[in-house]
Design a protein around this nucleic acid. Structure first.
Length: 264
DNA sequence: ATGGTCGGTGTCCGA
């Protein structure tokens, strides 16, 4: 059965519900995973998303911060939410499809500005979050697992995931300690980076451009923070991947763009 | 050149 999955850090789903409609209309993925919805469930736009043809929605929210959601044309056999690091943050939801495929949607903590565990509690939280997720997936590891993991992982692991490795090597999102922790998380379940499987490691790819640049397109100082991973059982089914750079130019858009992967 | 701009529990905080 074919399956297309998109991930997009939307930075307020209420403000950008019209852009979500445009994206879904133009790309029609089976499933869209959103991060930074910034909406409690009492104000989450369930009805609008359903009117776009996405009748199945699993969301977790907070007031103003974080928030993740999975919106789908395919029905769910089960839905789950998990909290990490002893916090109530809404950073991880997952669904199990009728064919047993699990889709995990993560919003990894950004980590603050200073890449030092002792000086910066946010950075410590980010690493602890990755470690807890790593341990959890390692304990669930099985060769037959058909899992997809998507989201804003807030780490650009490869040199070709950033506009300048040299300029960013000490900037949170691309530091060696984060890259190493993410690699450890990837090994926990032998996750395959589906986008890199399609494009290879040498191609420069970004999914995020700061709001602070005067001209994001001309400066092009991007980073690939948004990822789609699959377990080895699903990797042979990956057919196509796309990062929708043009969405960064849409009116009043997010600083992240959608990433789409299609599986046979 | 250490700024800049977003969104929302808004006049600060997190990104």
């Amino acid at each position: 059965m074919a399956l297309s999955i998109a991930t997009w850090n939307i930075n307020s789903v209420r403000l950008r519900i019209g852009l979500v409609e445009r994206f879904l209309g133009e790309n029609a993925p089976d499933i869209l995973c959103l991060q930074e919805t910034k909406a409690m469930l009492d104000v989450f736009p369930f009805d609008a998303l359903k009117s776009f043809g996405y009748k199945h929605i699993h969301a977790a929210g907070m007031k103003g911060y974080n928030g993740v959601a999975i919106v789908s044309k395919k029905p769910f056999a089960r839905t789950d939410v998990k909290h990490w690091c002893g916090k109530e943050d809404a950073r991880h939801v997952w669904v199990t499809l009728k064919d047993g495929v699990e889709v995990h949607n993560f919003y990894v903590p950004a980590g603050g500005d200073i890449p030092d565990l002792k000086q910066n509690e946010k950075f410590a939280h980010k690493l602890r979050f990755l470690d807890e997720v790593t341990t959890w997936f390692a304990a669930r590891k099985a060769a037959a697992n058909k899992f997809v993991l998507v989201g804003d992982l807030n780490i650009a692991p490869l040199e070709t995931d950033v506009w300048s490795h040299k300029a960013l090597v000490n900037v949170v999102s691309h530091t060696p300690i984060e890259v190493e922790r993410l690699a450890r998380m990837q090994r926990s379940h032998d996750w395959v980076d589906a986008v890199r499987q399609v494009f290879g490691d040498d191609k420069t790819l970004y999914s995020w451009w700061s709001y602070r640049a005067a001209d994001w397109d001309a400066a092009d100082k991007g980073r690939r923070l948004d990822h789609v991973w699959v377990t080895p059982a699903l990797a042979p089914r990956v057919r196509d991947a796309a990062i929708l750079r043009e969405a960064r130019g849409w009116q009043q858009t997010s600083d992240h763009v959608p990433v789409v992967v299609r599986l046979k």
